[in-house]
Protein backbone atom coordinates (compact mmCIF):
# COMPACT_ATOMS: atom_id res chain seq x y z
CA UNK A 1 0.00 0.00 0.00
CA UNK A 2 1.24 3.47 -0.77
CA UNK A 3 0.89 6.28 1.78
CA UNK A 4 -2.33 7.64 0.22
CA UNK A 5 -3.96 4.20 0.43
CA UNK A 6 -2.78 3.81 4.02
CA UNK A 7 -4.16 7.20 4.98
CA UNK A 8 -7.54 6.42 3.40
CA UNK A 9 -7.76 2.99 5.00
CA UNK A 10 -6.92 4.49 8.40
CA UNK A 11 -9.76 7.00 7.92
CA UNK A 12 -12.09 4.15 6.98
CA UNK A 13 -11.20 2.29 10.19
CA UNK A 14 -11.91 5.40 12.29
CA UNK A 15 -15.27 5.98 10.58
CA UNK A 16 -16.30 2.34 11.02
CA UNK A 17 -15.48 2.61 14.74
CA UNK A 18 -17.41 5.88 15.09
CA UNK A 19 -20.50 4.56 13.37
CA UNK A 20 -20.41 1.28 15.29
CA UNK A 21 -20.12 3.04 18.66
CA UNK A 22 -22.81 5.67 18.06
CA UNK A 23 -25.43 4.00 15.85
CA UNK A 24 -27.35 0.77 16.18
CA UNK A 25 -27.68 -1.16 12.93
CA UNK A 26 -31.13 -1.14 11.32
CA UNK A 27 -31.98 -4.78 12.08
CA UNK A 28 -31.31 -4.27 15.81
CA UNK A 29 -33.19 -0.97 15.96
CA UNK A 30 -36.22 -2.62 14.37
CA UNK A 31 -36.05 -5.48 16.87
CA UNK A 32 -35.97 -3.00 19.78
CA UNK A 33 -39.00 -1.20 18.32
CA UNK A 34 -40.84 -4.49 17.82
CA UNK A 35 -40.08 -5.47 21.42
CA UNK A 36 -41.33 -2.11 22.63
CA UNK A 37 -44.64 -2.44 20.75
CA UNK A 38 -45.19 -5.88 22.29
CA UNK A 39 -45.02 -4.59 25.87
CA UNK A 40 -48.03 -3.37 27.78
CA UNK A 41 -48.35 0.43 27.81
CA UNK A 42 -47.34 1.96 31.11
CA UNK A 43 -45.50 -1.15 32.29
CA UNK A 44 -41.93 -1.15 33.59
CA UNK A 45 -40.84 -2.90 30.39
CA UNK A 46 -42.49 -0.14 28.32
CA UNK A 47 -40.69 2.47 30.48
CA UNK A 48 -37.30 0.78 30.04
CA UNK A 49 -37.67 0.33 26.29
CA UNK A 50 -38.86 3.94 25.89
CA UNK A 51 -35.66 5.16 27.55
CA UNK A 52 -33.60 2.76 25.43
CA UNK A 53 -35.19 4.10 22.23
CA UNK A 54 -34.53 7.69 23.31
CA UNK A 55 -30.95 6.77 24.02
CA UNK A 56 -30.49 5.25 20.57
CA UNK A 57 -31.77 8.46 18.95
CA UNK A 58 -29.66 10.75 21.15
CA UNK A 59 -26.41 8.83 20.59
CA UNK A 60 -26.89 8.93 16.83
CA UNK A 61 -27.77 12.63 16.79
CA UNK A 62 -24.80 13.55 18.99
CA UNK A 63 -22.43 11.03 17.41
CA UNK A 64 -21.47 9.83 20.88
CA UNK A 65 -21.12 6.33 22.33
CA UNK A 66 -24.49 4.60 22.86
CA UNK A 67 -23.13 3.10 26.07
CA UNK A 68 -20.11 4.31 28.03
CA UNK A 69 -18.75 0.77 28.05
CA UNK A 70 -17.47 0.71 24.49
CA UNK A 71 -16.53 -2.89 25.05
CA UNK A 72 -14.18 -5.45 23.59
CA UNK A 73 -13.14 -4.40 20.10
CA UNK A 74 -13.64 -7.31 17.73
CA UNK A 75 -12.63 -6.89 14.07
CA UNK A 76 -13.46 -9.41 11.34
CA UNK A 77 -11.57 -8.41 8.22
CA UNK A 78 -11.38 -9.90 4.74
CA UNK A 79 -8.57 -8.33 2.73
CA UNK A 80 -7.14 -8.68 -0.80
CA UNK A 81 -4.60 -11.47 -0.58
CA UNK A 82 -1.91 -9.53 -2.39
CA UNK A 83 -1.66 -7.19 0.60
CA UNK A 84 0.50 -7.67 3.68
CA UNK A 85 -1.65 -8.62 6.68
CA UNK A 86 0.71 -7.05 9.23
CA UNK A 87 0.29 -3.70 7.50
CA UNK A 88 -3.51 -3.94 7.82
CA UNK A 89 -3.27 -5.00 11.46
CA UNK A 90 -1.09 -1.99 12.16
CA UNK A 91 -3.62 0.36 10.57
CA UNK A 92 -6.49 -1.21 12.54
CA UNK A 93 -4.59 -0.58 15.79
CA UNK A 94 -3.80 2.97 14.71
CA UNK A 95 -7.50 3.48 13.97
CA UNK A 96 -8.39 2.28 17.49
CA UNK A 97 -5.90 4.68 19.07
CA UNK A 98 -7.26 7.60 17.00
CA UNK A 99 -10.90 6.70 17.75
CA UNK A 100 -10.09 6.55 21.47
CA UNK A 101 -8.56 10.04 21.31
CA UNK A 102 -11.69 11.31 19.57
CA UNK A 103 -13.90 9.83 22.32
CA UNK A 104 -15.65 7.25 20.10
CA UNK A 105 -14.14 4.62 22.41
CA UNK A 106 -13.65 4.87 26.18
CA UNK A 107 -10.17 4.17 27.60
CA UNK A 108 -11.18 0.61 28.23
CA UNK A 109 -8.19 -1.72 28.20
CA UNK A 110 -6.42 -2.60 31.42
CA UNK A 111 -3.25 -4.60 32.11
CA UNK A 112 -4.53 -7.70 33.90
CA UNK A 113 -1.57 -7.89 36.28
CA UNK A 114 -0.90 -4.27 37.20
CA UNK A 115 -4.41 -2.86 36.64
CA UNK A 116 -2.90 -0.04 34.59
CA UNK A 117 -5.06 1.37 31.80
CA UNK A 118 -3.15 1.69 28.52
CA UNK A 119 -5.29 4.73 27.69
CA UNK A 120 -5.26 3.74 24.02
CA UNK A 121 -7.28 0.49 23.95
CA UNK A 122 -4.23 -1.20 22.44
CA UNK A 123 -2.34 -3.94 24.27
CA UNK A 124 -1.99 -7.72 24.36
CA UNK A 125 -5.28 -9.10 23.00
CA UNK A 126 -6.79 -5.71 22.24
CA UNK A 127 -8.15 -5.08 19.71
CA UNK A 128 -9.00 -8.61 18.60
CA UNK A 129 -8.25 -8.96 14.90
CA UNK A 130 -9.57 -11.80 12.77
CA UNK A 131 -7.80 -11.33 9.43
CA UNK A 132 -8.59 -13.47 6.43
CA UNK A 133 -7.17 -13.03 2.93
CA UNK A 134 -9.43 -13.57 -0.06
CA UNK A 135 -9.24 -13.48 -3.85
CA UNK A 136 -11.34 -10.30 -4.22
CA UNK A 137 -9.64 -6.94 -4.58
CA UNK A 138 -11.67 -5.07 -1.94
CA UNK A 139 -11.96 -5.29 1.86
CA UNK A 140 -14.90 -6.29 4.01
CA UNK A 141 -14.34 -4.91 7.48
CA UNK A 142 -16.78 -5.87 10.22
CA UNK A 143 -16.61 -4.62 13.79
CA UNK A 144 -18.37 -5.55 17.01
CA UNK A 145 -18.10 -3.64 20.29
CA UNK A 146 -19.18 -5.94 23.09
CA UNK A 147 -19.60 -4.53 26.59
CA UNK A 148 -18.42 -6.19 29.79
CA UNK A 149 -21.85 -6.57 31.42
CA UNK A 150 -23.07 -8.92 28.72
CA UNK A 151 -19.72 -10.66 28.26
CA UNK A 152 -19.79 -11.59 31.96
CA UNK A 153 -23.03 -13.58 31.59
CA UNK A 154 -21.76 -15.79 28.75
CA UNK A 155 -21.72 -19.47 29.70
CA UNK A 156 -20.35 -22.77 28.39
CA UNK A 157 -21.90 -26.20 28.95
CA UNK A 158 -20.23 -29.59 28.60
CA UNK A 159 -22.88 -32.17 27.71
CA UNK A 160 -24.24 -34.31 29.22
CA UNK A 161 -25.02 -31.79 31.93
CA UNK A 162 -26.74 -33.32 34.94
CA UNK A 163 -27.85 -30.13 36.66
CA UNK A 164 -30.22 -29.20 33.83
CA UNK A 165 -30.74 -32.70 32.46
CA UNK A 166 -29.25 -31.86 29.05
CA UNK A 167 -28.15 -34.79 26.91
CA UNK A 168 -26.09 -34.81 23.73
CA UNK A 169 -28.82 -33.88 21.27
CA UNK A 170 -30.68 -30.78 20.08
CA UNK A 171 -33.19 -31.10 22.93
CA UNK A 172 -30.21 -30.87 25.29
CA UNK A 173 -28.86 -27.85 23.42
CA UNK A 174 -32.21 -26.11 23.78
CA UNK A 175 -32.12 -26.72 27.54
CA UNK A 176 -28.72 -25.07 27.66
CA UNK A 177 -30.01 -22.03 25.74
CA UNK A 178 -33.00 -21.58 28.06
CA UNK A 179 -30.83 -22.06 31.13
CA UNK A 180 -28.39 -19.43 29.83
CA UNK A 181 -31.24 -16.94 29.33
CA UNK A 182 -32.48 -17.69 32.86
CA UNK A 183 -29.03 -17.40 34.47
CA UNK A 184 -28.45 -14.04 32.78
CA UNK A 185 -31.74 -12.58 34.12
CA UNK A 186 -31.48 -8.82 33.49
CA UNK A 187 -27.77 -8.64 34.25
CA UNK A 188 -26.63 -8.66 30.62
CA UNK A 189 -28.69 -5.50 29.82
CA UNK A 190 -31.56 -7.23 28.08
CA UNK A 191 -33.46 -7.62 25.89
CA UNK A 192 -30.44 -9.42 24.50
CA UNK A 193 -29.44 -11.74 21.69
CA UNK A 194 -27.85 -15.15 22.24
CA UNK A 195 -25.09 -16.43 19.96
CA UNK A 196 -24.68 -20.17 20.34
CA UNK A 197 -22.09 -22.62 19.04
CA UNK A 198 -22.65 -26.36 19.27
CA UNK A 199 -19.39 -28.32 19.30
CA UNK A 200 -15.84 -27.15 18.74
CA UNK A 201 -13.43 -27.02 21.66
CA UNK A 202 -13.67 -24.61 24.60
CA UNK A 203 -11.93 -21.83 22.65
CA UNK A 204 -13.45 -22.27 19.18
CA UNK A 205 -16.87 -22.74 20.77
CA UNK A 206 -16.89 -19.25 22.25
CA UNK A 207 -15.35 -17.87 19.07
CA UNK A 208 -18.12 -19.46 17.03
CA UNK A 209 -20.81 -18.20 19.41
CA UNK A 210 -19.66 -14.61 18.82
CA UNK A 211 -19.49 -15.09 15.05
CA UNK A 212 -23.24 -15.79 15.13
CA UNK A 213 -23.69 -12.09 15.97
CA UNK A 214 -22.45 -11.20 12.49
CA UNK A 215 -25.71 -12.60 11.09
CA UNK A 216 -28.61 -10.19 10.61
CA UNK A 217 -31.36 -10.65 13.21
CA UNK A 218 -34.04 -11.31 10.59
CA UNK A 219 -32.12 -13.94 8.62
CA UNK A 220 -33.07 -17.61 8.43
CA UNK A 221 -30.63 -20.33 9.44
CA UNK A 222 -29.91 -22.39 6.26
CA UNK A 223 -29.98 -25.58 8.34
CA UNK A 224 -33.69 -26.36 8.93
CA UNK A 225 -32.97 -28.18 12.20
CA UNK A 226 -31.07 -25.22 13.59
CA UNK A 227 -33.68 -22.78 12.23
CA UNK A 228 -36.34 -24.67 14.16
CA UNK A 229 -34.18 -24.73 17.29
CA UNK A 230 -33.64 -20.95 17.04
CA UNK A 231 -37.38 -20.28 16.68
CA UNK A 232 -38.38 -22.53 19.55
CA UNK A 233 -35.68 -21.35 21.94
CA UNK A 234 -36.56 -17.71 21.25
CA UNK A 235 -40.28 -18.28 21.75
CA UNK A 236 -39.74 -20.20 25.01
CA UNK A 237 -37.20 -17.70 26.37
CA UNK A 238 -39.71 -14.92 25.81
CA UNK A 239 -42.19 -16.77 27.99
CA UNK A 240 -39.81 -16.74 30.96
CA UNK A 241 -41.08 -13.25 31.80
CA UNK A 242 -37.66 -11.77 32.62
CA UNK A 243 -38.20 -8.81 30.27
CA UNK A 244 -36.11 -5.72 29.52
CA UNK A 245 -33.46 -5.12 32.23
CA UNK A 246 -34.98 -8.00 34.20
CA UNK A 247 -37.97 -5.79 35.09
CA UNK A 248 -40.45 -8.41 33.90
CA UNK A 249 -42.15 -8.40 30.49
CA UNK A 250 -42.53 -10.12 27.16
CA UNK A 251 -39.21 -9.30 25.50
CA UNK A 252 -36.44 -11.21 27.24
CA UNK A 253 -34.51 -11.93 24.02
CA UNK A 254 -34.58 -10.35 20.56
CA UNK A 255 -32.87 -13.24 18.84
CA UNK A 256 -31.20 -16.64 19.16
CA UNK A 257 -28.58 -17.57 16.55
CA UNK A 258 -27.08 -21.04 16.48
CA UNK A 259 -24.19 -22.53 14.52
CA UNK A 260 -22.46 -25.90 14.65
CA UNK A 261 -18.80 -26.88 14.57
CA UNK A 262 -17.41 -30.38 14.40
CA UNK A 263 -16.36 -31.81 17.75
CA UNK A 264 -14.27 -34.64 19.13
CA UNK A 265 -16.27 -37.77 19.89
CA UNK A 266 -15.40 -37.23 23.57
CA UNK A 267 -16.58 -33.60 23.74
CA UNK A 268 -19.93 -31.88 23.29
CA UNK A 269 -19.76 -28.21 24.20
CA UNK A 270 -22.55 -25.69 23.94
CA UNK A 271 -21.09 -22.19 24.15
CA UNK A 272 -23.43 -19.26 24.67
CA UNK A 273 -22.51 -15.58 24.30
CA UNK A 274 -24.96 -12.89 25.37
CA UNK A 275 -25.18 -9.60 23.48
CA UNK A 276 -26.86 -6.66 25.22
CA UNK A 277 -29.56 -4.52 23.58
CA UNK A 278 -26.77 -2.03 22.70
CA UNK A 279 -25.73 -4.47 19.98
CA UNK A 280 -23.01 -2.48 18.28
CA UNK A 281 -22.06 -4.23 15.10
CA UNK A 282 -21.32 -2.65 11.76
CA UNK A 283 -19.35 -3.42 8.64
CA UNK A 284 -18.32 -1.90 5.37
CA UNK A 285 -17.15 -2.80 1.90
CA UNK A 286 -13.95 -0.81 1.49
CA UNK A 287 -12.19 -0.47 -1.87
CA UNK A 288 -8.52 -1.32 -2.29
CA UNK A 289 -7.96 2.45 -2.31
CA UNK A 290 -9.41 2.65 1.20
CA UNK A 291 -12.79 4.20 0.37
CA UNK A 292 -15.96 3.07 2.13
CA UNK A 293 -18.23 1.91 -0.66
CA UNK A 294 -21.20 0.45 1.19
CA UNK A 295 -22.37 -0.30 4.74
CA UNK A 296 -23.15 -3.94 5.42
CA UNK A 297 -25.82 -3.59 8.14
Amino acid sequence: MNTTQQKKLLEAFIEIIRKTSAELPKDVLEAVQRGHRAEEKGSRADYALGIIENNIGLAKAKSQPLCQDTGSILFYIHYPRKLDHSEIAKLARKGVIAATKKGYLRQNSVDSITGKNSGTNVGPGSPTLHLEPWAKDHFEIRLMLKGGGCENVGIQYSLPEGRIGAGRDLAGVKKCILDAAFQAQGKGCGPGILGVAIGGDRATGYLGSKEQFLRKLGDRNPDPLLAKLEDEALADANQLGIGPMGFGGKTTLMGVKVGALNRLPASYFVSVSYMCWAFRRQGAVVTSKGEIKKWLY
Binding site: A48, I51, I52, N54, N55, L58, A59, K62, Q64, P65, L66, C67, Q68, D69, G147, G149, G186, C189, M245, F247, C276, W277, A278
Partner: peptide, 13 residues
Protein backbone atom coordinates in the same frame (compact mmCIF):
# COMPACT_ATOMS: atom_id res chain seq x y z
CA UNK B 1 -33.09 2.25 42.19
CA UNK B 2 -32.40 0.40 38.95
CA UNK B 3 -31.28 2.71 36.14
CA UNK B 4 -31.45 1.61 32.50
CA UNK B 5 -28.21 -0.16 31.63
CA UNK B 6 -26.58 1.12 28.47
CA UNK B 7 -28.63 4.32 28.36
CA UNK B 8 -25.51 6.46 28.78
CA UNK B 9 -26.79 9.39 26.70
CA UNK B 10 -30.26 9.72 28.24
CA UNK B 11 -28.77 9.57 31.73
CA UNK B 12 -26.03 12.08 30.91
CA UNK B 13 -28.80 14.43 29.72
Amino acid sequence: LHAIGGAAQVLAE
